[in-house]
Design a protein around this nucleic acid. Structure first.
Lengths: 346, 346
DNA sequence: GCCTAAAATGAAATCGTGTGCAAAATGGTT
DNA sequence: AACCATTTTGCACACGATTTCATTTTAGGC
């Protein structure tokens, strides 16, 4: 009864496998490590016995000694948002393929609990952290987490109000937003748009700020007057409401560029179902992201596509490279954008 | 230089905090455990020093001795699916509030890699596992994972083709699908629907099977002839295509009940944009789930709502109760459904 | 100031694994 | 058969915490 193999009903350990296979515990460890040197027949035997006992190496114990948890922390404000859920989906798939598991955390929209959340996450020792949110500042991330953890912020980093740059330990994932935006404006202009409007995302978002700035630049270059501005927050409901406001109180527009697709849906529905305007005949609409819903016939949205596969692959490439050589200089990957033409312009 | 507090640049350990605060490592451990007995001033000192050193207890080390990883494994086929992403969102929020982190895994739609995935997940020692998928059979789950891990399958368990029941260790989360379905049929019938059709979800899905069975029962009770059947797979594209097929090749229908909301969107778009039929005047449509997109004006879908908050709270309640008393008899929580009336029936 | 019950303390054992290192086994050559 | 190079093996330690348990300190009542 003192045989470790039968002592306990809970998880099997390497010791149990060892005693059952008449080998040392070290051999069991080596059998599960592809690079370790162990006689092939011995490894086969051990793996067979391990399977019988339903044994799997304990990641927690393993991570203590190797220093690798095989966990990647992912921070998101809303898993429900189509774009974010698609990013999480693609990322989880890619990480899984590389042997990492996704540790998912949700931030609240207010910034109050940031540090608590990050501190909690830190306890799990993620090998890397990816923040799909602008609710957490990069500076806070790098302060709370240990500097040894590679951090990725899937948005333009920018400097915050303190003027402090994120520091050299941040690898960058650039999205060449300009290409797609330029194509979008050109297309709308080509179909005769005169009065442009920009539907902004959340106020503190750097991504929407960058998109807006580029739109201004491009329009100036083309001799167009600056666009009107609608303050949104990336949600359907706000986009809907503020579009009504623009056309009822304000002057209206004949071309609306939304900082994201979901916002564009709100714009379209407000125009069609409440204002009695036709899209694209009366008003042209372009979105940003190209989420799965954008090809649904009710919207059939012309939009600036960020290639998600390309983006996630670049991200994973950055992570793996950084984990392999933690002190190498800061890297940058660049992802392109391009306009996907559907039915909301002309 | 041998002072542990300054020895290493990486994560701070309890030892470093201890030596810096002139206390024993045990005291540090107790300072972070709310129930431990330690003099308040001492705890305050330790917590202050810990904060200075940016110390956080290592979950991996902690879990080895306590046996609790504070991880909950979540298995999902598609994070992008609106319903599932909303479930993950609500669940992650609820789990976070209870001190658990979400460990997210994606299954492939084919069943081939099941065991590999589960085995991998097992290595992380999740305290509990929730499968939002029918791609993994409960039997496989309980076989691969240790029986000590409470498993939740967020779908009707049913018996599989082997006739083997999942076993007594599964707590159950029942969804009272009948209430909502009955209301839906009554409403459609009240508005004069004569010829019903059911848009089924994926072929192997037990949830869609149950919905279909109930629809049949209810219609029989009301003296209605059995509905036509459209084979879908929960996706928009298939729903769209098969609806076209039903009306072009088949006889058509004037009331379509979809096994999920996304499918209903496909139905609506096929009717309106391709078949030139009006919803709800010519064809009435009801969905199932009530996802966030269902109130969008372009669809404004009448649908059977599963209360997500209620459902997730029940799930978390089950998990916590099971973790507290692992050997208590199998529990069942029940979640209601009800019809949300919008604009696609009358 | 003394006695007792309760609270606080720290040394040592423990959880399950990977790794450095020295010893042993193996295989191929002369 | 003796030699050397290479592979394989196992002991002992490390990782970073928690938890007994025996001991010391504190607090409270007389």
């Amino acid at each position: 009864m003192s045989d470790p193999a039968t002592r306990n009903r809970s998880r099997a350990t390497a010791d149990m496998v060892a005693s059952r296979a008449n080998v040392s515990r070290v051999a069991v460890s080596r059998a599960f490590n592809p690079h370790a040197s162990i006689k092939p027949e011995k490894r086969d035997l051990i793996l067979r016995v391990a399977q019988e006992l339903n044994y799997t190496p304990d990641m927690a114990a393993r991570s203590m000694v190797t220093g690798r948890s095989h966990l990647v922390g992912v921070i998101v404000p809303d898993v429900c948002s189509p774009w974010e859920s698609q990013e999480i989906d693609a990322l989880t798939t890619a990480l899984q393929a590389e042997g990492f598991a996704t540790l998912l955390f949700k931030t609240r929209t207010d910034l109050s609990m940031d540090e608590t959340l990050l501190t909690y996450m830190k306890g799990f020792n993620p090998d890397s952290v990816i923040a799909f949110t602008e609710n957490v500042r990069p500076q806070t991330l790098s302060r709370v987490l240990d500097r040894a953890v590679p951090i990725y912020v899937a948005y333009p980093h920018g400097e915050d109000e303190t003027g402090e740059a994120p520091g050299p330990l941040f690898d960058r994932l650039n999205v060449m937003q300009r290409d797609g935006i330029e194509q979008a404006i050109a297309l709308m202009q080509g179909y005769g748009a005169k009065r442009f409007a920009f539907l902004a995302g959340a106020t503190h978002s750097l991504a929407t700020a960058e998109r807006e700035r580029m739109m201004h630049n491009i329009m100036a270059e083309r001799g167009l007057e600056p666009p009107l501005r609608i303050q949104g927050d990336y949600t359907y409901d706000t986009a809907y409401r503020e579009t009504l406001n623009l056309f009822r109180v304000g002057e209206g527009a004949d071309a609306i560029f939304s900082a994201n697709d979901v916002g564009a849906f709100g714009v379209i529905d407000a125009l069609r179902h409440d204002l009695g305007l036709r899209v694209p005949q009366d008003v042209k609409v372009v979105g940003f992201d190209d989420i799965l819903q954008s090809h649904w016939k009710s919207y059939n949205l012309t939009t600036v596509k960020i290639d998600l596969t390309e983006r996630v692959q670049a991200l994973v490439r950055l992570i793996l490279r950084r984990l392999k050589s933690p002190s190498s200089p800061s890297l940058t990957e660049t992802v392109s954008t391009r306009l996907v033409v559907r039915g909301t312009v002309g």
